[in-house]
């Protein structure tokens, strides 16, 4: 039904930040990307939202520590489809500097499908914007395929 709207719909990505036990480095860079006039993501139509129910693009940071694992997965389920996940930093993919730590048993990508990965420790704001641009492509493809519902 919405297949032809892909290019219009992807001009309004609302972003939600999900911290899966990150060291806060990536979160600081994400806050920088969101807030300071130099990077102004609102040009792309982005808006940072506080509620997972409003989100389209999820920026995940952190290696998924055992303590937050269930909560992160629960919040992730609250996000309505179609959603695109962007891993910010290397932690969600491999664990980065926290690999083999006793606080995390396995990396985040064993639980959540990561659509776009922005490596870095932390990545610079421009790289995060580049990741968001890639995520918009993924979203558009999904809208065209129509493969974006929960069922």
């Amino acid at each position: 039904m919405f297949k032809s709207l892909g290019s219009l719909v992807t001009r309004s990505p609302w972003i939600y930040r999900l911290n899966a036990g990150s060291c806060n480095g990536c979160d600081v860079e994400m806050a920088t990307t969101a807030l300071i006039p130099r990077y102004d993501v609102e040009r792309l139509g982005c808006k940072y939202c506080g509620s997972p129910r409003h989100a389209d693009i999820v920026l995940i940071s952190g290696p998924l520590t055992l303590r937050v694992r269930d909560k992160v997965l629960r919040v992730f389920d609250e996000i309505p489809h179609p959603k695109v996940t962007v891993a910010v930093g290397v932690c969600p993919v491999t664990g980065g500097a926290f690999r083999d730590s006793y606080t995390c048993d396995t990396a985040l990508d064993q639980y959540i499908n990561l659509d776009v990965i922005v490596p870095g420790c932390p990545p610079r704001p421009q790289a995060i914007i580049e990741g968001i641009a890639k995520a918009l492509e993924v979203w558009k493809e999904r809208m065209e395929e129509g493969a974006c519902s929960r069922s």
Binding site: V9, R11, S12, P37, D40, E42, R43, G45, S149
Partner: peptide, 25 residues
């Protein structure tokens, strides 16, 4: 006023259109 460029003028309409394609929980 915050020294940014800002979204295009039709951004609120695009937001509405986008929200209509999303799932209702």
């Amino acid at each position: 006023l915050q020294r940014r460029v800002g979204p295009p003028l039709i951004q609120p309409a695009l937001d509405i259109l986008k929200l209509c394609t999303k799932e209702t929980l």
